[in-house]
Amino acid sequence: MRRTLFESLHRGTLTEPAPPHDTETAALVAELDRAALRRLGRSLAIRAVDAGSCNGCELEIIALGNVLYDLERFGLKLVASPRHADVLLVTGPMTRNMSAATRLAYEAMPAPKFVVAVGDCGRDGGVFAASPDCLGGTASVLPVTLTIPGCPPPPAMLLRGLIGLLG
């Protein structure tokens, strides 16, 4: 243990600089309701909900917490309860079987609240859009503030989108 800690001290930090602002994400966040977001200040509590994803998006959301991306240094924190959340981060093509639970999670959040649809599935159902078991994306059930597409979106892209929410 001591050796590991000592080496970590000497090697310096693994955490990488914040991702640069790019035009792609700038376009994603251009339409946001800035006034409402400003009321939340410089931090956002995020509740991730899997509305039927293949778990690929979850893997990349979890990666946001690793030491290279270190989500929390930006004031972005994944929380356990929707009652503590400002942002619902929704993945998956919105399966019929998850639609009720997703709606309940949104209703449990205090206002002001925002929904971020993640991945191609979250955007419009992705490859599952034609399925009778899917409603087709987050917007089929909830008002979506921001969409971060990709299959799955890499952590750097998720990070740019979420930092964009902070303005």
Binding site: D50, M98, C134
Partner: peptide
């Protein structure tokens, strides 16, 4: 069953 997507049908 919550993530049922009907993959095989597709």
């Amino acid at each position: 069953g919550y993530t049922r997507k009907g993959t095989l049908g597709l």
